[in-house]
Design a protein around this nucleic acid. Structure first.
Lengths: 157, 157
DNA sequence: GATGGTTGGTTGCAAATCTAAACCGACCCG
DNA sequence: CGGGTCGGTTTAGATTTGCAACCAACCATC
């Protein structure tokens, strides 16, 4: 892409530049699930090998994954998530939850649960100051730039 | 994409099939911000007009947005998020937060805050049963399919 | 020590996708 | 009537992608 004419003035723009590729989030999903080797990912996803190689290089350049050797002579390595990569967990969870809610037809929804009580997890905005969850209608954008991420401006369908 | 050889067995796969396009999440960001008209979105994003038209049709087909007429004679309409579309809010927020955390260099981070106390928001997994936030290390995948979305299997970088 | 298998790629080409720019119909304004 | 806006569609050319074949390094085996 020619990098939108708006120089990336937005976190979402920057994020999508880094990981917004059609395959990248699926690769990350595999890494989260412990599928870490080139051929395992390739088999699991059915992605072309050259694309997988490219994506892994980009992800390593971005610092989202790192190569970790697991044997020497043939040099072989796995791709591990860095802290930056693991920080994507909420985003993956949110996307997964949305898929569960609206595309349940297929197969097992791969739901996420709290291991202590087996309850299905929600994803909540959390205010560390109030130490409580925040209703979406009380979310505003920060430095007063007038940009509101609103979920209430439209009526229900 | 040729729809991976794995028939979409995963919520993330299904989700990305629906909205995983390079532009689609940016279009949704605009809709969340109240940018709802064809030419406004086109100007804001710099997307080609045919692609924008295609994406909006797909999003309407998916039930993520709906066309809402705002004048009659020339028939003109806006694109509004449906409930299904608004349900993507946590995912957008999560992606935005990640961008804020790791790509702050550029400009104003467009942070999200709690409007009552102006505190920056975190995104938390929430157990409705325990009525409390859940630590990432206590997340397991649901119907015991052996698929764990783990954030702790690798060491820090 | 040749034969085959596994792993992690690279290369080349056809097919799909994207961009840019022109065009269009329905209207409004002066 | 001439010009401008809005919401697109069409076309043509550049870019990206997918697929398949190939390759190099090793191992295991006979």
């Amino acid at each position: 892409m020619a990098e939108s004419h708006q120089p990336d003035d937005c976190s979402i723009q920057r994020t999508l530049d880094a990981i917004g590729d059609r395959w990248t989030l699926l690769i990350l999903r595999d890494l989260f699930r412990g599928v870490r080797r080139f051929s395992m990912i390739q088999t699991d996803l059915g992605i072309a090998r050259n694309l997988l190689a490219d994506r892994l290089i980009s992800l390593a350049d971005e610092g989202v994954v790192k190569k970790v050797p697991y044997q020497d002579r043939p040099p072989r390595h796995e791709y591990h998530l860095t802290a930056k990569g693991r920080a994507l967990s909420p985003a993956l969870v949110a996307l997964m939850r949305w898929g569960d809610d609206y595309y349940t037809d297929g197969g097992a929804p791969t739901e996420l649960v709290h291991d202590e009580c087996q309850t299905r997890l929600e994803l909540q905005s959390w205010c560390t100051s109030c130490n409580s969850p925040v209703d979406p209608t009380h979310i505003r954008s920060a430095p007063g730039a007038g940009r509101v991420l609103s979920v209430t401006e439209t009526e229900d369908v």
